[in-house]
């Protein structure tokens, strides 16, 4: 077995530098790598490019990095729910590349799996396709979208083992599996880190080959963005 465990979040983030491109898993606040984000805030890195479906909320998730103006460019599909983000974007302080959600997923997966680019119908005929190569297949138009290139991918899983194998839970899975192995170094933080053999190989979502560093995270807040309930 090739061991991927690191002692803590500090060791997991060894090598991060100003100006790097980071992928961060999560949809809304569900499944975000809370420990890695906190450490990026502490390290006070600057000029980051962040690829993440959303940009957090004002005081949580990637919103914490935005608040300290650590992000130079944000690549996302949806950035509502974040007033500071909107302010920085409209004032021009923050460079924003809005990308359709499925395209964002495909560009991560392409990077993971060695495809240089993929054709998608999403965005054809809109400003998203401006300047991009388009091509017709069977009478329908498609846009060529290139795989992302990133230095670090930060993902969060429910369970993982020392070999870096990962299992996700519920809709916290989202972009996390697609970012594994899509960057030079993939850092996985998990709620529960177990010994090899404790996870059923049939149930593994992401094999450890896609993960360079794994650690058990601490103090997960797992904040809920829209608490909606019904009465019994």
């Amino acid at each position: 077995m090739i061991k991927k465990t690191v002692k803590n979040v500090q060791e997991a983030l060894d090598g991060v530098k100003d100006g790097m491109t980071m992928m961060l898993g999560g949809f809304g606040l569900s499944g975000i790598p809370e420990n890695s984000i906190s450490e990026l805030v502490k390290l006070n890195l600057k000029d980051l490019t962040c690829i993440s479906n959303n940009a957090g909320v004002d005081d949580f998730g990637l919103g914490l990095l935005l608040h300290k103006k650590q992000i130079k460019k944000m690549i996302s599909s949806y950035v509502g729910e974040n007033a500071e983000f909107e302010r920085q974007m409209l004032s021009g302080e923050l460079d924003v590349e809005l990308t359709p959600q499925g395209t964002l997923a495909a560009k991560c997966q392409a990077a993971q799996q060695g495809f240089p680019a993929v054709y998608t119908p999403a965005g054809f005929g809109t400003e998203v396709a401006e300047g991009k190569e388009t091509r017709e297949f069977d009478g329908k138009m498609y846009v060529l979208e290139h795989a992302y290139k990133a230095d670090f991918a930060f993902v969060k899983a429910w369970k993982g083992d020392e070999a870096g194998n990962l299992i996700f839970k519920g809709t916290a899975r989202n972009f996390n599996p697609l970012m594994c192995g899509a960057a030079t170094i993939t850092v996985a933080e998990v709620e529960k880190l177990v010994k090899p053999g404790e996870l059923d190989p049939n149930q593994i979502h992401i094999p450890g080959i896609f993960v360079q560093r794994i650690f058990e995270g601490k103090n997960y807040e797992k904040r809920i963005e829209q608490r909606t309930v019904r009465q019994k």
Partner: peptide, 9 residues
């Protein structure tokens, strides 16, 4: 400017 989310796909 909130973004397109999954709508374009």
């Amino acid at each position: 400017v909130k973004g397109m989310g999954g709508a374009m796909d």
